[in-house]
Computed example of a mutant assay.
Amino acid sequence: MSETESYPELGQVVQILQGREAGQFAIVIEKVDSRFVLLADGDKRKYDRPKKKNVQHIAFTSFISPEVQRSLLETGRVTNGKLRYAINKFVEESQTDLKKGDQLDGKRRCN
């Protein structure tokens, strides 16, 4: 695995795989070093109290929030509202994709 594949981007939505918050989504708000990132979701994990997580304990999604990424790069911080909005947007889009897939599968069975 190359360095870029195994390391998330700022503003990227990730799913937590290990620990008390397993199964939940969060956003990468800072890269600590080659093994750790800081995660926040704007709800239980606010921006000012992020969770330090080993990158091996999170699953990367392909969704990177441009609003969050831009805010972090321009000002060095992001509002909790923006974090919540980005996660909700990601969850809605992934559910919409699943529904489209289910409909396609249903049509195939009928034919």
Rank of each mutant, 00 (worst) to 15 (best):
F90I: 04
D97A: 15
P50Y: 03
N54Y: 13
Q12L: 11
L83V: 00
V28S: 02
E3H: 14
V32P: 04
A40F: 02
Q103L: 11
A86S: 13
Y7S: 07
Y85M: 07
A59E: 14
G106S: 14
F25S: 03
F90A: 04
V68E: 01
R108F: 15
Y47H: 05
L83I: 00
T75F: 12
L39Q: 03
P8G: 06
S62Q: 14
K44A: 09
F63H: 15
K44T: 11
F90M: 02
H57M: 11
L39N: 01
G106V: 09
T4N: 13
F25A: 01
E30H: 07
K51V: 07
P66W: 04
K82M: 10
G11E: 01
F63L: 07
K51A: 12
T75L: 08
P8L: 04
S71A: 11
E5M: 13
L73T: 05
F63P: 14
R109W: 11
I16P: 06
T96E: 12
G42W: 07
I64S: 09
K31M: 09
D48V: 08
K52C: 04
E5K: 15
E92W: 02
S71V: 00
R49F: 03
F25P: 00
I27F: 02
I64T: 15
K107F: 14
T4Q: 14
